[in-house]
Lab assay of single mutants.
Amino acid sequence: MQRVNMIMAESPGLITICLLGYLLSAECTVFLDHENANKILNRPKRYNSGKLEEFVQGNLERECMEEKCSFEEAREVFENTERTTEFWKQYVDGDQCESNPCLNGGSCKDDINSYECWCPFGFEGKNCELDVTCNIKNGRCEQFCKNSADNKVVCSCTEGYRLAENQKSCEPAVPFPCGRVSVSQTSKLTRAETVFPDVDYVNSTEAETILDNITQSTQSFNDFTRVVGGEDAKPGQFPWQVVLNGKVDAFCGGSIVNEKWIVTAAHCVETGVKITVVAGEHNIEETEHTEQKRNVIRIIPHHNYNAAINKYNHDIALLELDEPLVLNSYVTPICIADKEYTNIFLKFGSGYVSGWGRVFHKGRSALVLQYLRVPLVDRATCLRSTKFTIYNNMFCAGFHEGGRDSCQGDSGGPHVTEVEGTSFLTGIISWGEECAMKGKYGIYTKVSRYVNWIKEKTKLT
């Protein structure tokens, strides 16, 4: 034993070699072989497995989906700052455009905790909710729209109204504003409101030439003092309507412009014939205590009207009353817009006519005020429907199939267009061939041609 100890002390290297040989010859039971080890760690190889990531292109799944990435790591994937920024906006807080917040056709661009709407022409605001041009839906104005110097929408209202708090709607500024039905039992019968379409306001006024200088022999019209197929109006439903009495009662109609003036057809009036105007009328054979009678003290036909040349060209006249009318729910003026808007309103496509005229061709006159909704007829169809001249200051309205029309005794009465609950004068009943005849239409004086003249002559002093 002493000898062994001496050998170990003198030859430590020998001992180490012996131990190493023993270990190498022993069977290893701690580690699995290569094949079995792979069965336990069965993990798919990654895209760049075996390579240094710093030297390969980034992978979106590896960089940002398996674990949260930084902007720089995302930049490695896209290799483009702009594309990385677009991805980053949604990656950080989701897609803010998912709810489609942009209105009126706006395009949404996502941002971090926010979004941006790219608005089409005519709109602005956070969600493109603000109209900035009158060309689109009248700028959301209830009545009139004008573009300011910086191309912003400025709404306005006709006389007797003021802008509401929203700067879009119009509200009454006087007790009985024009064009409004205020009798409670008839307010439910107000005709369907007309909503502004998209309009090209630059070209809204037709490029028409008034044929002022045409000389033409007097034409022989049949029954051209021209509501057939209409309905009984309720008291106060058309408070701007008046009836004219002269040699015979209810020979023509008219509309209240203001307390002192009536507008009617020029062919209705004769110099030297006494005319009485009755406002607030409903049943011409009954006294309903809503009527107001006034005498006409002055007749002003349009300066281009000449019955000797043509009885229905420039067929418009103004009547001055001896005493002002007292405005109330049964006696209310009709609204008159400017030339541009009167023309736009007419193009809405349908209007209402009213009167006490004959209820059928050569038949009896109506006792109760009649009204009828009539569609506008395109000019080409209008011209083809008659052998008589249709001037540019006239328009056609009615039904091709016949059966409904204005008729004798309705002449001078109103053709009105309702705009968001307020009625505007767009025409004056003038003439036609018979009444409600198939293929024939009622012919009306186009008020847009005469609004400046009306307003100039009827100013209240």
Rank of each mutant, 00 (worst) to 15 (best):
V195I: 07
I17Y: 11
T386F: 05
A26F: 03
R298G: 04
F399L: 11
G272W: 07
N5C: 12
M65C: 10
L321N: 00
E433G: 07
F395K: 01
E72I: 15
A250G: 12
S430N: 05
L211P: 11
E208F: 04
V228S: 09
C28H: 00
Y115K: 15
S107V: 11
L163Y: 00
R294N: 00
V353L: 08
N452K: 11
K440A: 10
T287P: 07
T84I: 05
K446I: 01
T426G: 01
V269N: 00
Q370L: 02
S187C: 12
T386G: 14
V377Q: 14
T389G: 14
D223W: 07
C102T: 01
D150Q: 08
P414Q: 10
K446F: 01
F176L: 06
F395Q: 01
K234F: 10
R46A: 15
T422W: 01
K109W: 06
C382L: 04
G421A: 13
Y371E: 12
G106A: 03
T85V: 07
H302K: 01
P44Y: 09
T209G: 10
Q143P: 00
Q408D: 15
K387W: 07
F224P: 10
T422F: 03
E27R: 03
K293M: 06
V4D: 05
R364G: 11
T29G: 09
A308P: 07
F196N: 11
G13D: 03
S169V: 07
V374I: 15
D131Y: 12
N222E: 03
D200S: 11
N310A: 08
S107F: 05
T461E: 11
G280H: 02
G432V: 11
F78K: 15
E323L: 14
I284H: 06
G160A: 02
I316P: 00
R298I: 01
T133W: 06
P172E: 05
E66M: 09
T271N: 11
A337R: 01
V278I: 04
N328Q: 02
L14E: 00
I443Y: 13
K146M: 11
K459I: 12
A9P: 12
I256R: 00
Q96M: 15
N147C: 09
F360W: 14
E86F: 07
L321H: 00
W118V: 10
S350F: 12
T190M: 04
E285N: 09
Y352S: 14
Y201P: 07
G229A: 10
E434V: 14
G179W: 01
V202F: 11
A317E: 01
W261M: 02
P414I: 14
D405C: 10
R294Y: 01
S411V: 15
L319T: 01
G357Y: 15
W118A: 12
E54D: 12
I15Q: 02
G50T: 15
E285I: 09
E285F: 12
Y352T: 07
H289G: 12
S107G: 09
T287W: 10
Y371C: 11
S329P: 14
Q408K: 07
N258M: 00
C119M: 01
E420Y: 14
K293P: 03
S350W: 14
R75V: 13
L376G: 03
V153E: 11
I428F: 10
N104F: 08
A380F: 12
T290M: 08
E231A: 04
Y391K: 10
T186I: 10
T190H: 09
D378C: 04
L20N: 01
E208Q: 09
T276R: 11
K438Y: 13
C170P: 01
E124N: 11
K362G: 12
C396E: 01
A397I: 02
C435I: 02
P333T: 02
N222T: 04
E61Y: 07
V419F: 13
L24S: 03
V331P: 00
V353D: 02
V242E: 00
I429A: 11
E340V: 12
P324Q: 04
F221G: 04
E116Y: 05
N147I: 05
I300E: 05
K137Y: 10
C382S: 02
V277T: 02
V331D: 00
K274G: 11
P177N: 01
G427K: 00
N80S: 11
L24G: 02
H400D: 11
N151V: 05
Q167R: 05
Y47Q: 06
S411R: 10
R294T: 00
S114A: 12
T386R: 13
H400V: 15
Y201R: 06
T85D: 09
V257R: 00
V243Y: 12
G230C: 12
V447A: 08
A37W: 03
S411C: 14
I40S: 15
F221N: 10
W453S: 01
H400E: 13
I112L: 14
E82Q: 15
E124S: 11
